[in-house]
Design a protein around this nucleic acid. Structure first.
Lengths: 153, 153
DNA sequence: CGTGAAATATGTATCGT
DNA sequence: ACGATACATATTTCACG
C-alpha cells in the first residue's frame, strides 16, 4: 500500500498548513471533499500523521536561548545510558535529542529562558549523572531555521 | 496586553493538538465556543501562533538519517557568512539552523535519506563555500525526542 | 470517486454583566 | 471589555449512485 501522487500532495500540504479546511485541501489536490477527507482519515489511521500542532512564535513569550549540548558517556553501559536518557527526555528544557555515533553519544537541543535556567538544568540532569564523561555546550542566540516538514517521497 | 491564564491554556492546548474542534477547546479552557474562538483569532492576529502543521512520522517514508553539523567559518565576514547562510537555509536537507557563539559558528540539523545524499549536500553547500574553515558531522541513526512545544510562561 | 442531504462546527449579532 | 445565548453560515460526514 504505497502512497500515490494525491496522498503525497495531501501530506505535503498538511505539513505546511493543517489549519485549512477540507474543502480547500480537496480543491488543492483535485478531489471532492468527501474523497479527500476519506484519504486524510486513512492516512491518519495508517500512522502517517503523528499529530497536528500549532507552532508558536518564541519571541512573543520573552527572552530565550537555545543550547546545543554534546554529551559523551563514560562507558557504553546500556542500562546506565538508558537511565540518563530517561532523565533527559523527561526534562522540559530538552526539546530534541539525537543519539549519535562516534565520540559523542547524544546531542540535545535545549531551550531555556536564560543562563541560570540552563545551569539549573545541567545540575539536575547532566552533573547528576555518574556515567556522563563530559559535555560541551554551544550557545545559540538565534535560530535561523526551523522546518518540521519532511520529504514525502 | 499580557496573556491571561485562559490564553495560555488555549496556546498550551493548541501546541499539543490543534486538530481538536473549537467546541472541545472551549470546553477544555472553560469558555463558551464563541468566546474561545474570539481568543484564538486574536492570538493568531497578534502573532502568537506562527502556523499550524501536521507532523509526519518519518519512518513511514523510508530510511533516513539525521546529521548534526557544526560549521566553523574562516573569518567573521558578515557578507560571506550571509551568503553561506542563504545557501544553507535554502537547502531542503537543512531542517534547522542555529547560529552559535564560540569556535563553531553554525549548527545545522540535516535530514537525508542516506549517506550519498548527505555527501551530495556537503559538496553542494559546504565544500562550495570558500569562507568555510571546517565542519564536523555527527551522524544520528535515532532521534529520541522531538518536541515543538515551548513554555507559554 | 462524485453528488446531494443531514449532522456538526464555525462564525456573527445581540444582550447582559 | 468580555462572556453567554441564539441564530446564521460553512464545513464535515454519510448515504447513494
Amino acid at each position: 500500500m504505497p502512497l500515490d501522487r494525491i496522498d503525497k500532495a495531501i501530506l505535503s500540504s498538511l505539513q505546511s498548513d493543517c489549519s485549512q479546511t477540507n474543502l480547500q485541501l480537496a480543491q488543492q489536490v483535485g478531489l471532492s471533499p468527501p474523497a479527500c477527507l476519506k484519504r486524510v482519515k486513512r492516512l491518519k489511521a495508517q500512522g502517517y500523521i503523528q499529530k497536528e500542532v500549532a507552532l508558536l512564535v518564541p519571541e512573543k513569550f520573552g527572552p530565550y536561548l537555545h543550547m546545543v549540548v554534546e554529551v559523551e558517556m563514560e562507558r557504553d553501559n546500556k542500562a546506565m545510558n538508558q537511565r540518563f536518557l530517561q532523565r533527559a527526555l523527561a526534562s522540559p528544557e530538552v526539546k530534541q535529542c539525537y543519539q549519535v555515533t562516534g565520540e559523542v553519544d547524544f546531542v540535545l537541543i535545549c531551550m531555556v529562558p536564560d543562563m541560570p535556567s540552563y545551569e539549573a538544568f545541567c545540575d539536575r540532569v547532566l552533573y547528576a549523572e555518574a556515567n556522563l564523561k563530559k559535555f560541551r555546550t554551544l550557545i545559540s542566540l538565534k535560530r535561523e531555521k526551523f522546518d518540521t516538514r519532511i520529504n514525502t517521497g
